[in-house]
Every structure is written in C-alpha cells, then in structure tokens.
C-alpha cells in the first residue's frame, strides 16, 4: 500500500439509504460523502434519527447501503460477500456499541478474548492477548468476574479492551458513553483519546454529548441524513486540556 492510500483510512462516497416500511420508502441517508485520514478522531454528531447510527452500521459492514460505496483500507467493503465482511471486521475494525453485550457465561477476560476466538484462535491464546489489554484499560482485577457484575463505566472499558484485541486499524464507537454518567463518560473518553494517540488508531465515534466534542480532532455534523458541517475541531484536545488544567489550578 502506498503512503497516500495509507493516509486516507475511510472513504465514504455517495451513500444513500432508504428503508421500506409498509410498502413506503423512507429515506434515511441522502448521499453522504467524507474521507477520514489515518489517526483522526472523528466525532459524528447530530440529533436523534438523523441517520448517524445507520451510517455507522453501513461503514461497519452490517447494513447494506442503497447506493454508494465505503472504501476502507483500499477495499470496497460492499462489493464483497457477507463472510468476507465478517472477516474484515474481525481483522481491521474494533467496535464499541452503546450497550456492550456480553457472552453471559464467560468471564470478563474471556469476553475480551472473543474477537480472537472468532478469528480461529483458542481461548487460551486469546486470553494471553486480552491480559495485556485489560491492564491497559485498568480492569485487571476484574478479569474473572462476570461482565454483567460490573458498572456501566467498567463495562465500557472492557468493551474498549475487546475492540482493541486484534490490533485494529480503526475503531468504530456508537455512543459508547450514552448510558454512562458524566464522570464515567469523561474517563472513558480520556482513555479512548490516550489510546488513539498512543497507538495511532483512527476513531469514528457517534456522540450526542457536547461535552465530549473536545476529544475529537474533527467533527462531522449530520441533520436529516445529510452532512451539514464537517470541520477540524477548533477546540482541539490539547487546547482543551490546557484549559482544563487552568480551571483546575484556579480551583486549587
């Protein structure tokens, strides 16, 4: 792969989507175009029902677009078979859903190991990789608990570890802080931010929470299935961080 191709991580072109409900065609996305560069932390924002999640599912390879293409790492995702996309997701894309969903009968660390198990590794091999990631998200002591015993914030940290297991090029997150309180949400976002910077992972995240805008390097705004604005974040993380430190100092 050339450097230029490397540079553009995700290329969404002319995506349209409509659902047929009771014989009626309901349009959701009216032609969406954007490119995401490697290492970007993109926030996809907009009101409920504007098509953010649908767009995310199309990019993640779960929901077929009515029109348009999604090019990830040089591959036109929707020109391949379902099994190919399943393999591709497993290999390249980490996923953090709004509610993490666990295999109830498995422990926390076994759940983190699941993407490796799906990839054909044994649980033992998967757990060895998972052990490093659970440490990274600071959840080591909960390894052998059942995931549903954990708090919402803890569960999302574990979900983050699960999404990073197979060293993905991209992470797609669908309102991962949607069910968390302010503090837990903030902590998760910081963790995501650090990991994104540390491992140069491209992140595309849907969020409602304006407080979290500061974590993104770029914000794409959607209204009624169209992009209304797409710009680099003026209040980027470093600036915000400096501001936070300032506030903290003031308080002290």
């Amino acid at each position: 792969m050339s450097d230029i191709q490397n540079e553009i991580a995700i290329k969404v072109k002319g995506i349209k989507k409509h659902f047929i409900v009771g014989g009626r065609e309901i349009p959701i996305l009216h032609g969406v175009d954007f490119e995401i560069k490697k290492g970007e932390f993109v926030l996809l924002v907009g009101p409920s029902g504007c098509g953010k999640s649908t767009l995310l599912h199309i990019i993640y390879g779960l929901e077929a677009p009515t029109e348009g293409t999604v090019d990830i790492g040089g591959e036109d995702e929707w020109s391949h078979t379902k099994n190919w996309r399943a393999n591709f997701r497993n290999d390249n894309i980490g996923f953090i859903p709004q509610q993490p969903f666990w295999i109830k009968s498995l422990t926390v660390i076994e759940n983190i190991a699941i993407p490796a198990v799906i990839a054909g590794k044994t649980f033992h091999e998967g757990i060895q990789i998972a052990a490093k990631l659970i440490e990274l998200v600071g959840m080591s002591e909960w390894s052998n608990h059942r995931p549903y015993d954990l708090s919402g914030g803890q569960q999302q940290r574990v979900a983050l570890a699960r999404s990073l297991l197979l060293d993905p090029k991209f992470v797609i997150a669908d309102e991962p802080t949607g069910n968390l309180d302010q503090k837990a949400g903030e902590q998760l976002m910081e963790l995501l931010q650090n990991i994104s910077q540390q491992f140069q992972i491209t992140i595309l995240m849907v969020t409602h929470n304006m407080d979290q805008y500061k974590f993104g390097t770029r914000i794409i705004q959607m209204v009624d299935g169209k992009i209304t604005s797409d710009a680099a974040n003026k209040h980027n993380y470093r600036a915000m961080k400096a501001e936070i430190n300032l506030t903290k100092n003031e308080k002290q």
């Binding site: 997701r89 295999i103 799906i118």
Partner: peptide
Amino acid sequence: EVGILKALGA
C-alpha cells in the same frame, strides 16, 4: 449474544 458475536465477525 448471537448478535454481538456476529457483529464481531462470527
């Protein structure tokens, strides 16, 4: 559970 397994590539 089945849904998330499939989402993750099963």
